[in-house]
Structure formats: C-alpha cells, structure tokens
Amino acid sequence: MLAILSVGPVPSHIAFIMDGNRRYAKKKNMEEGDGHKAGFNVLTSLLRYCYELGVRYVTVYAFSIDNFKRKSTEVQSLMELMQKKIEELLEQESLINEYGVRLHFIRDMQLLTEPVRAAVEKATRVTAHNNQRVLLICVAYTSRHEIVHAVQECCKEKLNEVQTRKKVKVTNSAFSRIDQGLKGNDFDLLSQDSCKEYLNAIKARSSEVECAARKDGLSESNVENDIGNYSEAQMISYNGLVEMTEERKHKQDEVPFIKLADVEKNMYMAVAPDPDILIRTSGEPRLSNFLLW
C-alpha cells in the first residue's frame, strides 16, 4: 500500500486533530481514559505511515486550552498520559530515533503541569539535532491564543526599537560634527532628535532667533518670522534639514508599524510550512480553534 501511494504526489505537511477518543471509549464500553490511550497508540501507527511515505512535517492537536475546562480528574489523567507518551517517544527504539524526528511543542508552557513541562523541555533538547522529519505537538494550544501571542511579541520588538532610538543622544562631540558639516554645506542628519538639538544650540548662541522643534519635525513658522536673521548659508542648511526630516517622517508614515511578516515570524507554527491536508479523526467538520492563521 505504501509503495503504491508513494508513486503519487506526497504532501509535505499533514495536520491531525486527535478527536473522538471519549466517544470511542463510550461506544466500546471502555473505562474513562482508555479512549485517549487507544488514540495515542493509533497516532504512533499514523506517524510511521507518514514518515515511510516521506511526509516531512506532521502536526497533531493533542490538547486544547479549552480542555482545561473539563473536570480536574480528567485533566490530571491526560497530563499524566501525555508525560508518559512523551517519555516513550525518547526511548532508544522509538520511531523518533528510527526516523530522525525533531520534536516541536506548540504550547503555552505556563499552563502545563511541572512534570509535563520538564518532559517537553527534555524532548525538545534531546531531539534538537534531528533533521530528517519534524513532529509538532500542539498542547495547551488554541489558534487565537497563538495569534495574540504573536502580536504581543511583535509589539515588544517594536517597542524595543523605539526605546533604542530614544536612547540615542546627540553629545557635544556629535554637535561639533553637525556644525562642521553645516559649515561645509554638507549636513549629515543623524536623527530627528539631532534636528532639535541643533536648533536649541542655535537659539542658545543667538538670542535674536527663536526656533522650536515639533515632535514629528520642525516648526517653519518661527523661521519665517525671523528669516532675516539667518545668513544665506544657514538658511540653505536649515531648509535641507527640514526637507530631510519631513522626508523621513513621510517614509515612516508609509511603512506599517507591524507588518504581516512580523506576525508570521512570531507564530508558534513558524517552524513549519502551512499544512497541505488537515484530518480530524472523529470525522467532525469543525476546526475547533486549530491552525486558523
């Protein structure tokens, strides 16, 4: 069967929503929790099929954040089962080692129990060198949570960029270089803060002219009022300063603060391409907050 299937096009990435375990257990009159154990065993077989066919990426939706709303005994049982199965994956004879599979856990670590968290960290570390196949296990996961997390990370990055820019101060030596550049009619604009510092220096050195700097640029009205107090060289340099500042402002306005690529690189699933096929094992036609992005 595998030989026949491998002749046709093989998908790069298949995602599974592991669903219907409780209904299966109820239908078969099994004890509580046995349905999930059976589901994990079937998953092992599915992974072997996928890796034999040459599917490089497999993602499984093992545990939703919404599942924490179930009764505490069931949640605890599932956490213990998850810990056990993760540890089994690391055994020498497991398919993880057989196929050189790297494990990625797509999750909010803070929601997991300490034993599961430790197992996740160990499995991620031990398989980090594997590069033939990739298994992504979504635990303590929902797609909306993933998107919110990505946006939050984007905001942190952009805030750091803004704070870094604000820390750049024009020192006396920097002002000296600006002044020398002006005298050579070759002004080098360091930043908008540089413009403000230069104008403040002009004001301090010449009480005849009062200039103010707007937050996003420079106020030209004051200059127009006292235009006669500037030499021709000063006016040329100042006008160039205004034009360069305004040009920078317009460029900043044109570029979105957070772009699509910024969000995508901060998604948990950024480590894999988009799935080619999504399979829900119970047959239900619902996404259940899985890989919505």
Score class of each variant (00 low, 15 high):
Glu208Phe: 01
Glu208Arg: 03
Val209Trp: 03
Val209Thr: 05
Val209His: 02
Val209Ser: 03
Glu210Trp: 13
Glu210Pro: 07
Glu210Ser: 08
Cys211Gln: 07
Cys211Asn: 06
Cys211Pro: 01
Ala212Gly: 12
Ala212His: 12
Ala212Asn: 12
Ala212Phe: 15
Ala213Tyr: 03
Ala213Met: 02
Arg214Phe: 00
Arg214Tyr: 04
Arg214Trp: 07
Arg214Asp: 00
Arg214Gln: 00
Lys215Ser: 00
Lys215Met: 00
Lys215Cys: 00
Lys215Tyr: 03
Asp216Glu: 06
Gly217Arg: 02
Gly217Cys: 01
Gly217Glu: 02
Leu218Asn: 01
Leu218Ala: 02
Ser219Cys: 05
Ser219Gly: 03
Ser219Trp: 03
Ser219Asn: 03
Glu220Ala: 06
Glu220Trp: 03
Glu220Met: 02
Ser221Gly: 08
Ser221Phe: 10
Ser221Trp: 07
Ser221Val: 06
Ser221Leu: 07
Ser221Ile: 08
Val223Met: 12
Val223Pro: 01
Val223Asp: 07
Val223Gln: 06
Glu224Ile: 07
Glu224Ala: 09
Glu224Gly: 08
Glu224His: 11
Asn225Ser: 05
Asn225Trp: 10
Asn225Ile: 05
Asn225Lys: 09
Asp226Gly: 13
Ile227Pro: 07
Ile227Cys: 12
Ile227Trp: 11
Ile227Glu: 09
Ile227Asp: 07
Ile227Val: 10
Ile227His: 10
Gly228Cys: 10
Asn229Ser: 15
Asn229Cys: 11
Asn229Leu: 09
Tyr230Trp: 05
Tyr230Ala: 01
Tyr230Thr: 00
Tyr230Val: 01
Ser231Trp: 09
Glu232Tyr: 15
Glu232Ser: 15
Glu232Trp: 14
Ala233Asp: 06
Gln234Pro: 11
Gln234Asp: 10
Gln234Met: 11
Met235Thr: 13
Met235Glu: 12
Met235Gln: 15
Ile236Arg: 14
Ile236Tyr: 13
Ile236Thr: 10
Ile236Gly: 11
Ile236Asn: 11
Ser237His: 06
Tyr238Arg: 04
Tyr238Lys: 06
Tyr238Met: 04
Tyr238Ser: 04
Tyr238Asn: 04
Asn239His: 14
Asn239Glu: 07
Gly240Arg: 12
Gly240Ser: 12
Gly240Glu: 07
Leu241Ile: 10
Leu241Thr: 04
Leu241Tyr: 06
Leu241Ala: 06
Val242Leu: 06
Val242Thr: 06
Val242Arg: 09
Val242His: 08
Glu243Trp: 14
Glu243Leu: 11
Met244Ile: 12
Met244Thr: 13
Met244Asp: 13
Met244Ser: 14
Met244Gly: 11
Met244Val: 10
Met244Phe: 14
